[in-house]
């Protein structure tokens, strides 16, 4: 029996769809095989997501992450697309212009049939549905990893203090102590307090602007011995490294948003979005000629944060 019973124009009250309607059959000639293939795709997708999650968790490796995420997304997407193509009713369903509106009975019959059919589809494809749900869950969980990781641990006091202490030696990347003879006028060097080489919050730009003492601001009379000036390398805007020392114009430029700081004027902002001057580290030269910090920074370094007063 065919589910299609209308002939000619005008509405009819006959049933329009039935379980054995050929249009409601899956496109695939062998739904069982299609199901197996789609299942394999979805399963591969699940494996890909899980492998991505494991890779990310154990420390990450860009290529492997890319490959596994690619396998996951591709297997998953291909499975869903194939499901839509091969296992859903194939049609075609044609609506003719003069009979746009079906009768209530037709609508009800069709929707009943579709609803029943849909239920049956979902009921029958329990494994695929499960795999789809599993893949979705796996994808959701691993995509949440980066978000969750960014939530902790709490910074506590670390935003307020650096490792610069009174008397700390200035050392370069190799831990070598900087002496008063190391920089020529116009020289620049990234320095850290001894014992804390490579830390991000302690990195400091040391420049030599002159052979003579430099006073950048009232109250900082002793901070720039023999032309050595030290500023926090963290931009007060977004924390980028302010490492671009323009020696002729005596300015420090931040590469991220072009904040410009006046080296001879105590790190005050000349241009750009930075809200505060760069903190200056007071220096002194000890009896052996080593450059050392007179005191810690007098304010938190880097960009603003909620608790910063």
């Amino acid at each position: 029996m065919s589910g299609v019973t209308t002939e000619g124009d005008g509405p009819t009250h006959s049933p329009v769809a039935a379980f054995d309607d050929p249009h409601l059959r899956p496109y695939a000639q062998h739904p069982g095989r299609a199901e197996a293939a789609i299942g394999a795709c979805l399963f591969a997708g699940v494996l890909g997501f899980v492998a991505y999650g494991i890779t990310y968790w154990v420390g990450g490796q860009t290529q492997v992450e890319g490959i596994t995420l690619g396998v996951g997304l591709f297997g998953f997407g291909f499975g869903m697309a194939a499901w839509g193509k091969y296992l859903m009713p194939k049609g075609p369903f044609v609506e003719e212009r003069h009979s746009i509106e079906g009768t209530d009975a037709e609508v009800e019959t069709l929707s009943n049939a579709v609803a029943e059919r849909g239920k049956a589809v979902f009921h029958r494809r329990g494994v695929l549905g499960g795999l789809l749900g599993l893949g979705g869950a796996a994808m959701g969980v691993v995509l949440a990893f980066p978000v969750l990781r960014s939530l902790g641990p709490q910074p506590k006091k670390t935003l307020f203090v650096t490792d610069w202490k009174r008397g700390a030696h200035l050392v370069d990347l190799n831990g070598r102590r900087i002496t008063v003879n190391d920089l020529e006028v116009g020289g620049a060097l990234t320095v850290w307090p001894q014992g804390f080489v490579g830390t991000s919050q302690d990195q400091t730009m040391l420049v030599r602007a002159s052979f003579d003492d430099v006073v950048t601001r009232p109250g900082r009379e002793s901070w720039g011995p023999q032309g050595y000036l030290a500023y926090s390398k963290l931009c007060t805007h977004a924390g980028c490294p302010v490492g671009l020392y323009m020696e002729q114009t005596q300015q420090l430029l931040c590469p991220c948003h072009q904040s410009l700081f006046d080296v001879l004027g105590g790190g005050t902002q000349v241009f750009g979005p930075a809200p505060r001057p760069l903190p200056q580290l007071p220096l002194y030269i000890d009896s052996l000629g080593y450059l050392r910090a007179q005191a810690p920074y007098d304010q938190p370094v880097g960009p603003g944060f909620w608790e910063r007063s």
Binding site: G3, H23, H30, A37, L110
Partner: peptide, 19 residues
Amino acid sequence: MRILPRKVTTNSAPLRAMA
């Protein structure tokens, strides 16, 4: 609404179509 009958055509196996 009208659903037109259509001859059931033979499709290649889904595995091959996806290949």
